[in-house]
Amino acid sequence: MLRFLRKYSSSTGIKILYGLLAALFVIWGVGAVGGQRVDVVAKVHGETISRRDLDRAAALLQRRYQEVLKGQFSADLARSLDVRGRALDQLIDDALLRHEADRLGMAVGDVEVVDAITSMPELQEDGHFSRQRLEYVLQAERDRGEFEAEVRRNILFERLRNLVVDGTQVSDGEITERYRLDHEQVDLSFVRIAATDLAAGITLTDDDLEHYLAGHPESYRTPARVRLRYVAYRAADFEPQVEVQDGEITEYYELHKTERFTAPEELHARHILVTVPDGATEAAKSAARTKAEELLTKLRGGGDFAALAKQHSDDPGSAAKGGDLGFFPRGRMTPAFESAAFALEPGKLSDLVETP
């Protein structure tokens, strides 16, 4: 099919076909397969969320509410919780998360998913991972792939969250201000007047109506509609006729090697940060270096890195996690730290690294 279109691309018939297909996607705004319209409820960075996606997400969310609330869940409660609205918010959040992860070159491997699942507290029995408990969880899921997808999303979200919050400090004044805003109250008195009581004494003239219409034309404007006819070409109907040559595969790979077939190099590291305030005296700098050297000596003597980081690291973002910085590519850390980290072999310790 591709060769046919290339060969006759200059013919009038093919140009008309291109025009019809372009009009279909530009004017209609939704895809069509087999004459069936696919409604798009949202679009996030070019990724569409269909009505079918929303129906499925809403059904999964409602089932979770039913499992938590047992017999107390009702249709009225579902409406008050706005299950579809919450499901749409979740789909949009997921799309934003995937877009940002792709932009940063982040990906969650199968090994990480397996490690996360086997370390879940609810899947442990006598201190060990229980496959039987996992099977119970999977049996409760209508879609087994949803459980794995949710674990993968959670890992990705945790990585992005760490990028944002690591190294972030909140002052006491900011905490006080936020508490004040969250707990601010007002003493309010009001009078309720039914609109029907006021409407009975009001008479609108034609001039009043024309003046209001002139000021609010968009409220009464009917969206433009089109009717069209189109020809749908299903890929499955033409796949048996297409023969992909090795040269075409090589050409496609070379054209898309950077964005589709190249993963940026990442490193997983821990660190213990010893800070020196700006303008510190030489004595203070010397004391900090002495402390760092003592910590390095303990580590080289077999000390527990995570325990020492929790006790001595000045990095508020990673200290509680045993100095764990997660995965990061080149270009994210300071040059001196990055050079030292990427030069290390797995499991090895670096010398002291001084950064600005």
Rank of each mutant, 00 (worst) to 15 (best):
V68C: 02
G127F: 01
A42M: 11
Q66V: 09
L24I: 01
A23N: 04
L20Y: 02
D102N: 07
Y8Q: 14
V38S: 09
Q62C: 09
Q90T: 06
V38G: 10
L54C: 09
D39H: 06
D53R: 11
L88C: 13
L81P: 11
G31Y: 09
D102M: 02
G85S: 15
G19W: 00
Q72Y: 01
G34A: 13
A59R: 15
I92C: 07
L21M: 09
G127S: 05
R84N: 08
E125P: 01
R64Y: 02
I27N: 09
L24K: 08
T48F: 14
R86W: 01
G31P: 14
M106F: 13
V26A: 01
R6Y: 04
Q62R: 15
G109W: 03
R51Y: 04
D94A: 10
W28Y: 10
Q62I: 06
Q62W: 13
L123Q: 06
G85D: 14
L61Y: 11
R37H: 06
Q62G: 13
F25K: 08
Y8F: 11
R98D: 02
E100G: 00
W28E: 10
L54G: 09
I27P: 03
R6F: 07
A75P: 05
I92L: 05
E67A: 13
D89V: 01
F73S: 02
D93A: 12
R133F: 04
D94R: 10
A87K: 08
A75S: 05
K70M: 03
V41I: 15
G34V: 11
S10K: 04
I14G: 07
Y65P: 10
F25L: 04
R37G: 08
R84T: 10
S50Y: 06
V68K: 12
L81A: 11
V40M: 14
L21R: 08
V33M: 09
E100C: 00
D110Y: 07
A22P: 05
Q66D: 04
Q72M: 05
D102P: 00
T48P: 11
T48I: 11
G127Y: 02
E122M: 08
D115F: 03
L97A: 01
R64W: 03
A75M: 01
V40L: 15
Q72A: 08
R63P: 05
H99Q: 02
Q62A: 15
L123A: 04
R37Y: 08
S9R: 05
V38F: 09
A42Q: 13
D110I: 10
